[in-house]
C-alpha cells in the first residue's frame, strides 16, 4: 500500500512538472471569457449556457488528460527504460500498475476539483448580474449544488477512460492505445444505438452480437447527466450510485487485466 502511494505521488509530481495543470488556466480563461462575451450575443440564457459549457469543458479537459497521459503512463517508462531501475527495487509489477493508475486518478481529482470551484465561482458572479425577478424564472439557481451529481459521474467516467488507456498501453503503442481508447469512448456514447440495433437488422446473429456488445462495452452514455442537472430535472441518487458502481467494477476489471498482462511482459 505504501509502495502504491509512493508511485502515485511520483506520477502526480510528474504531471505537475510537465505542466498538465496549466489546462486549469485554460479552463478558467475560457469560462470567464465566455460568460463575459455571452451578454453581447444572447438574451437571458447566459447562466444556462455557462452551465452547459462549464460541464462540457470539465468533461473534455478531463478526457484529454485521461487519454493522453493515460496512454503514456506505462509506455513511457518502458520505452525510456526507466522501468529497469524501478523494478529492481522492492516493488511488484502489480503495485507499479496500480500506483501509476492511482497517480493519474489523483491528478484528475485535483483537476476536476479546481475546475468545479472555478465553475461555481463564475456562476456565483453571474448570479449577481441578474435582478431577483429574472432569477426566479430560472429552473434552478445559478449555483445549484445538484450539478455536483453530474460532476461526480464525469469524474467516474474519466477514471474509466484512464483505466482503458492504461490497459491498452500495457501492450500496445501509444498511437494505437489512443485510437482504441478514443474509439471505445465514442462507441460507449452510442451505446444505446447498439441496444436498438436489433430493431433495425433482420439477421439474428448480428442482433445477438450487438446485444452482447451492448452489455460488454463500457456504457459511457450512462455517465452523461449534464443536460438533466442543468434543467434541474430529477436524477435519483440511486442512479448516480449504481452508475458509479458500474464504473468502479469496470475499472477493477481493466486494472486486473492490465496487471495480468503486464506481469508476464518481457522488457527487451
Amino acid at each position: 500500500m505504501r509502495t502504491i502511494r509512493h508511485v502515485a505521488v511520483n506520477v502526480f509530481k510528474e504531471c505537475v512538472r510537465d505542466k498538465v495543470l496549466y489546462n486549469l488556466v485554460a479552463f478558467a480563461s475560457l469560462l470567464i471569457a465566455v460568460s463575459y462575451l455571452l451578454g453581447q450575443l444572447t438574451a437571458g440564457q447566459d447562466v444556462k449556457i455557462v452551465k452547459d459549457l462549464g460541464l462540457a469543458a470539465i468533461a473534455i479537459f478531463g478526457l484529454l488528460i485521461s487519454v493522453f497521459i493515460g496512454i503514456g503512463l506505462v509506455w513511457k517508462e518502458v520505452e525510456r527504460r526507466s522501468i529497469y531501475g524501478l523494478l529492481s527495487k522492492p516493488i511488484r509489477r502489480s503495485e507499479f500498475i496500480i500506483g501509476k493508475y492511482a497517480g493519474l486518478a489523483l491528478t484528475l481529482f485535483v483537476n476536476v476539483a479546481v475546475m468545479t470551484v472555478v465553475f461555481y465561482a463564475v456562476l456565483a458572479y453571474l448570479n449577481t448580474q441578474f435582478p431577483e425577478v429574472v432569477r426566479t424564472a430560472w429552473p434552478a439557481p445559478a449555483t445549484d449544488p445538484g450539478m455536483l451529481r453530474a460532476i461526480v459521474l464525469i469524474f467516474v467516467e474519466l477514471l474509466l477512460v484512464t483505466a482503458i488507456a492504461l490497459f491498452f498501453s500495457t501492450f500496445s503503442s501509444p498511437f494505437l492505445s489512443a485510437a482504441l481508447t478514443c474509439g471505445l469512448w465514442v462507441i460507449g456514447h452510442f451505446n444505446a444505438d447498439l441496444r436498438n440495433f436489433e430493431a433495425v437488422v433482420e439477421s439474428r446473429p448480428a442482433a445477438l452480437l450487438a446485444r452482447g456488445l451492448y452489455y460488454i462495452l463500457p456504457n459511457f452514455a450512462a455517465f452523461d447527466i449534464k443536460n438533466q442537472v442543468v434543467h434541474a430535472l430529477p436524477v435519483p441518487a440511486g442512479y448516480v450510485v449504481t452508475t458509479a458502481l458500474y464504473g468502479c467494477v469496470y475499472i477493477a476489471l481493466l486494472i486486473t487485466g492490465a496487471v495480468a498482462i503486464f506481469s508476464r511482459r518481457d522488457f527487451k
Binding site: N10, K13, E14, R17, D18, R80, R81, Y84, G85, S88
Partner: peptide, 13 residues
Amino acid sequence: GYLPENPYFYDHL
C-alpha cells in the same frame, strides 16, 4: 542493487 546499461531515469526529477 542494479545499475542498468545506459541508465535512464525520470526527466522531471
